[in-house]
Amino acid sequence: MITAAQVEPVVPAPPAPRRRRVRWGQVAAAVALPLLLVLLWQVSAWIVQPREWILPSPATIASTGWDVRERLWYHAQWTILITIVGFALATVVGCLLAAMIARSRVAGLMLYPWIIVSQTIPLVALAPLLVLWMPDFGAMVTLAALISIFPVIVAGVDGLRSTDPELIRAVRTLGASPGWTWRHVRVPAALPRLFTGLKLAAVFAVTGAVVGELVASDRGLGALTRLSAGQFETPVTFAAVVILALIGIAMFLIVATAEWAALPYSRRGTRPGSN
């Protein structure tokens, strides 16, 4: 047996002191721009006094939004549900398609070009058709899924094809079966890219849900923007838009958090010393 004494050991560096301070300067820099714009908007609204149904001030939007909070919440629930179900559907079906395309040459030839071509169809134009064919909820979910599935497939295929061939070569000589290589090498190697696609898809799903509601529904924040704008309830429209933005941000953060949890090795700050 070898003893450590015969191989020059690498001396572990003392663990770097972990400082997990919140950097207030960075936080301030991140929120400075939107705050400044809102402030500017509010000040100019005081000065110019535009009619409320054309351009309400941020303060009006906030107070009206608070007054109609139950109406907003009624519509928001619907949009959130459609977004989540549509995104989940896109994730599951997108990953399955990506796996088929990356795994089988024939599937790749049969499916991949057409999936790319399908993106030239303005999917928004399908909304009225989808409503004809299925119940409202199904139509909205389908539209959200259709819009968000593309980044999942592209990122999944790229990820699965990006495995380092040297890594596959090395594990094969260690006795890895194709199944082991798939589970333990190719899929984990694809995850960083897949998550990039999922973050895009999470935001696209909100767009898909809203577009469906705008065109063909009486419920959901998309429908609310159409209905309220039609009745000159402009502050309500703005409030709905703000909530939509918050839903998009939340979707992105949820996926980013999942990524952080699933890929511990890619976190920043796990690199010791100067190595």
């Binding site: 380092d164 040297e166 890594l167 070569r169 090395a170 594990v171 000589t173 260690l174 333990h184 090498v185 984990p188 190697a189 995850l191 890929l263 090795y265 890619s266």
Partner: peptide
């Protein structure tokens, strides 16, 4: 057993 040029360790 083969040891390639790049370390070929699994990053995850």
């Amino acid at each position: 057993v083969l040891m390639p040029q790049r370390d070929a360790l699994m990053p995850w």
